[in-house]
Design a protein around this nucleic acid. Sequence first.
DNA 1: TTTTATTAAAGAAATAATTCTTTATTGTAT
DNA 2: ATACAATAAAGAATTATTTCTTTAATAAAA
Lengths: 219, 219
Amino acid sequence: MNATGKYNKIKQVPEPTLKRLPGYLYYLEQVKNAGVLNISAPAIGKELKCDPTQVVKDLAVTGVKGKPRVGYNTFELIQALEDFIGYNRVHEAFLIGAGNLGSALMAYQQEQPLGLKILAAFDIDNNKIGRNVGGIHILDYNKLFNLSGRLNVRIGILTTPNEVAQEVAEDLISCGVKAIWNFTSARLNMPSNIIVQDTSISSYAAVLLRRLNDAADNI
Amino acid sequence: MNATGKYNKIKQVPEPTLKRLPGYLYYLEQVKNAGVLNISAPAIGKELKCDPTQVVKDLAVTGVKGKPRVGYNTFELIQALEDFIGYNRVHEAFLIGAGNLGSALMAYQQEQPLGLKILAAFDIDNNKIGRNVGGIHILDYNKLFNLSGRLNVRIGILTTPNEVAQEVAEDLISCGVKAIWNFTSARLNMPSNIIVQDTSISSYAAVLLRRLNDAADNI
DNA sequence: TTTTATTAAAGAAATAATTCTTTATTGTAT
DNA sequence: ATACAATAAAGAATTATTTCTTTAATAAAA
């Protein structure tokens, strides 16, 4: 039962749509900076090389209404997309595993906002502990439990070696984390109420390599 | 017309399947190291928390045949997966943009093989040029054209700022690159014969944030 | 040897996502 | 004013992907 008092089916927005939203946002920022007040779905579709009706459907998830012959209000659309994704709220996160990938993410979020604020990073390597990457301190992993008791961090970023991924993920949820952004290749075994977002770089590499191979086969 | 002399529909393997393959491979390596000679689809499915028939369908793309009541030969399956993805061939790549993300990828591929060999990285920043990350030299971007003339590199990894992504991508294809692994948020405008693999970190962040928000709505 | 349980493989059904079609709206031009 | 063209929105059809069902094969047990 939700706030409206009705049992309504939770119609989750499809993942492909969600993934396209930051792309629209990036383009719309450009458009806004160019001083364009209104933009139509066909115009967006043409620029982003995708179907205009798909643009309309994707943008509809934000609830913003466009006007025929005018399009959407650029500013309103940007605002709505940011709201919908969650960029206008503060999402605090811990990062575990300050290796290459972890450090990169810490540095990256400085220049490219991802909508989350990494409060601290944790590692077990004494060479890393105490250092600072992208404004984020790397702390001893043992301090995770103590620190999470005081803060209410709901997002854990997992950039550890594959071997310890499951173990660390379990630690994170025992610290109150509700969503895990998993960059390892390990498939995590988590309770159903925990959100796991797998982002395996090697998966993308595999797709690329295979597609290249397909192309070579069909010359 | 292909090698068999028949016009057969190029049935591309679905992207979701391709993305799952490295996961199987990672798990199978573990299993092999544990000395297990045969493994069944239900066993894999149970461990990886996915449908056993999907495992069967996914593995079928490699052409490996399993035996009823026995499963698949672990070694044969690993070999076939590596072959199918393309890990057993050398895929040379150039990386453009040795910033945070680019450097991370260079360092990362040392410890976590992605099936490709980054021959060199390029940047326009004099502070980066001449340095070495993960065994890869960072060269002046102007040298790209000269170097690509001598080497036959088919993969370009794009980790530049969004603003120059399109321009650099065009340079890459004029250098003979056939596939672009695009880490920027820019939507690239490329000829249809060029393979573009978009891997936007912010897309994943967006999905995670939204799902977390969905969960909060339904408490 | 015969039965039984397990499993891969192939096909069917269901679901999810995209693309296509129609309708209604609205600003612009006549 | 009136007609026209462009466009958002809603729904239908198509396509892709996943899940379910059936079948056939095979090793192990009786």
